Structures are given as C-alpha cells and as structure tokens.
Amino acid sequence: MGFEAQKTNRIRGEKFLQTYFSGRVLDIGCGPDLVTPTAQPFDREHGDANHILDYLPPQTFDCVHSSHCLEHMEDVRNALAQWWTLVKPGGHLVLVVPDEDLYEQGYWPSIFNNDHKASFRLDKKNSWSPVSYELRELLSNLPNAEIIEIKIQDNEYDYALLRILPGPFGRFLRLLGKGTLWLHYKRRSLFQRFGLGKTGIDRVFNKIERFLGMPIAQTDGQAVAQIQAVIRKI
C-alpha cells in the first residue's frame, strides 16, 4: 500500500490537518510519504518502531501519526503503548490501519502484503482472522486516552467486488482461491513479459476468479480500505 498518507489527507481535509498536525509531529513508518512536510520521520533507517522508546524520549510530540505501520509490528499492544508514551498530555495519536474485511478480504496470511502480522476490525465481536484486534477496545485500554473519532474509511471502494464467505465452504473457496490467485499472477507476469494483451484465456480466468470471489487489490488505485482513529491524551 503505497502513498496511503497522501490519499488519506485528501479525505481528511484542511481543517483536520491544521487541527492535528500542528506543533511537533512524529510520523512512524512513513517511508517517502510524510503526512506533513514538517513532520519528523521515523522509519527503518531510524530504528525499530517495535521499541521506539529506545530512540526517542517520552512525551516529546504534540502528535504521533502512523499510517499502515501497526499491522507490521511483532507485538501490537507493546508497540502501540510505546507510541502512545511519546505523546504529550493534551496531544494526539492519529492512527490508520487496514480494515481486515476490506483489505485482507478473508485471506490470512495476507495475500496483498506478506509482512502483515496483525489485522484490525471495528466494533465487531468476532473475526475470521486468527490475529485480529478490535481497534476501539485496543485504543480504549491505553492510559488517559480519549477517543475523539474512530471510523472506517472506504472512499472509492467498490463493495460489489467484495465477497467474504464464512464457515467450511468459505475456507474451501479460500484454499481453492489461493491456487487460482497464484495462477492469476503467473499469467499476468507472462503476459507482461511477452507483451501480450487480453486473450480469450485471460477473460476466462477473470470470470473464474470473479465467481470464486477472488480478492482485488483496490488500494492499488485511489480506493482506501482502512480504519482511522484519533486519540487525545488527557
């Protein structure tokens, strides 16, 4: 998921940016996509975000921002607790994570990012994912935390392409689908290598994949499939 902060900023609007990204801002896991030009980046070259307190002192920042990084942490609760410790009293944590239904789409391990170690849901008691966290509960357990907003962002997302099937039949289709997905990428790479366009076989595969409910990486385009939360430290 590349340059997600830029896509999310277009959704947030100018008022949001001025409200939360003023003062001293830390952007964790930003890569080349800083949430604001004045933010201080913290990425792999700066250290291990799982143990960020080894590099930065507590209560240093007016805002700590992280977009699509928490799902890569080895210990989600511990990493989040350390990020929260960096926030000054009265400051904010702005967190964005993939929504497991919209992004992972019933497949685990993730087929779109094999470095994902956790998935996230919002206001749902149960999950198909074996490593799922309910985000509201997770954030509510932070000390002195007030959730200002928490919501699913699905701009440009086409729900007609989403199909998550629970139970044994769904698991069977997911196993079958993984093999189909492998063939899908293999044939795409072959077509690109030899400069081939759409063929009759390609169209047949597309129909099979749609019938099986194969997931489509909509976030490769302008769509977002995520949960955003803003938490204030009281």
Rank of each mutant, 00 (worst) to 15 (best):
E4Y: 02
Q6G: 08
Q6D: 09
K15C: 08
T19W: 05
Y20I: 05
F21M: 06
R24F: 06
I28A: 04
P37R: 05
A39S: 15
F42L: 04
H51T: 12
L56T: 03
P57G: 03
T60V: 02
C69A: 15
E71Q: 14
A81N: 04
V87W: 01
P89M: 04
G90E: 11
E100S: 13
L102M: 15
G106D: 11
I111L: 14
N113P: 00
N114W: 09
K117C: 08
S119Q: 08
R121I: 12
K125L: 10
K125C: 00
Y133S: 10
Y133C: 02
Y133E: 08
L142C: 06
I150Y: 07
D158I: 03
I164A: 13
I164T: 14
P166L: 12
G167Y: 08
F169P: 00
R171G: 03
L176A: 15
G177F: 04
G177K: 08
K178W: 12
Y185M: 13
L190K: 03
F191K: 14
Q192T: 11
R193Q: 15
F194Y: 15
F194R: 11
F194M: 12
G195V: 11
T199K: 06
I201A: 14
R203T: 04
V204F: 14
N206E: 15
L212D: 13
Q218E: 12
G221H: 09
G221P: 01
Q228V: 14
A229Q: 05
V230G: 00
K233V: 03
I234M: 04
